[in-house]
């Protein structure tokens, strides 16, 4: 009987814990929506796209265009994943199929260490090292390109570790079959491993993308934070996350409400990505 009662306590406390975790996400979402509704009704949804610029604290003459920030977020994320995706996947391939076991183990611990470095450290390094280098190419240095490079460095470890896990999940039978057929290692990887691990690799890239979208501190430090739609890689930009971090503490009234709207915009992007990731994962499980 005693065992049963402690069991019940365990079950209920587990239920309470998961209910708390689940309701926290819902609470955050509700809170974001509630705060945003105020911003949307007071300012008007159209103005987020049609206003000429972002000048949020000018009283009646305020302008609330979110277009430059949305463009910056999309551009920096796509840029980062274009760089980090192939590098991360190829690093995982090397680690899984080419590297001697000792080297592979060392390599993996380095990558894990990289994944653990706080983003503000990447940002600081970017500000004092990367930005001056970019400035050599084209001033002012703090730019979309600097942001892409820092983001790419930050998400390479995430992509590499997840891709490695995906490659490890390829059934051994596939590999043995390929060996028996006398296929070269590269052919095996391209024709057998990649198709089999495609969904898992997709998940790795999507999770990397999510990390890039949400990243705040590092991009705040290296991107220049100008609210203009970039026309080249060397233009300074401000992402949605940087905008919130830069201004929320100083915002009142409409300005504050609009920052919550930009938070909601970010949340929607993430929800879409989670949806894609779920689809990929389900396919990975079926494969």
């Amino acid at each position: 009987m005693k065992v049963k009662s402690t069991d019940r306590i365990l079950v209920w406390s587990l239920r309470a814990a998961s209910a708390t975790a689940g309701s926290l996400v819902l609470l955050i979402l509700c809170f974001l929506v509630l705060e945003s509704v105020e911003g949307i009704t007071r300012v008007g949804a159209g103005r987020f796209l049609n206003d000429p610029g972002w000048h949020p604290s000018q009283g009646a003459e305020s302008e609330f265009s979110l277009v430059p920030m949305i463009a910056a977020t999309i551009a920096s994320t796509i840029g980062a994943i274009l760089l980090a995706g192939p590098v991360g996947v190829l690093a995982a391939v090397f680690c899984r199929f080419y590297a001697p076991p000792k080297l592979a183990r060392a390599f993996r611990s380095i990558v894990e260490l990289l994944a653990g470095i706080p983003s503000v450290v990447y940002g600081f390094w970017g500000l004092v090292t990367l930005v001056p280098l970019v400035r050599e190419l084209a001033p002012p240095g703090a730019s979309l390109l600097a942001g892409i490079l820092v983001l790419a460095m930050m998400i390479v470890p995430t992509v590499a570790l997840l891709a490695f896990a995906a490659l490890k999940n390829v059934p051994p039978g596939h590999l043995e079959g390929a060996t028996a057929l006398g296929l070269s290692r590269w052919t095996t990887i391209v024709k057998v491993v990649f198709p089999s691990a495609a969904s898992g690799l997709g998940v790795a890239i999507v999770l990397g993308t999510m990390r890039a979208i949400g990243e705040t501190m590092a991009v705040l430090m290296v991107c220049g934070n100008i609210t203009k739609v970039p026309s080249s890689l060397f233009d300074p930009v401000r992402t949605l996350t940087a905008n919130i971090a830069l201004e929320l503490g100083y915002a009142t009234q409409e300005h504050r409400a609009v920052l919550f709207v930009s938070g909601l915009a970010l949340m929607i992007m993430i929800v879409l990505l989670v949806f894609v990731q779920e689809r990929l994962q389900r396919r990975a499980r079926l494969a």
């Binding site: 610029g53 000048h55 000018q58 003459e61 302008e63 500000l127 004092v128 930005v131 001056p132 400035r135 001033p139 002012p140 240095g141 703090a142 705040l220 430090m221 220049g224 934070n225 100008i226 609210t227 300074p236 401000r238 971090a245 830069l246």
Partner: peptide, 27 residues
């Protein structure tokens, strides 16, 4: 007028402003 300023970099606090200028000889 805040709206007319043509900036290349926007910073948050004083420290970030100083690091940005110290890192760029033409700023």
């Amino acid at each position: 007028d805040e709206k007319e300023i043509q900036a290349d970099v926007i910073v948050g606090d004083n420290e970030q402003g100083i690091k940005t200028v110290a890192g760029n000889p033409d700023s």
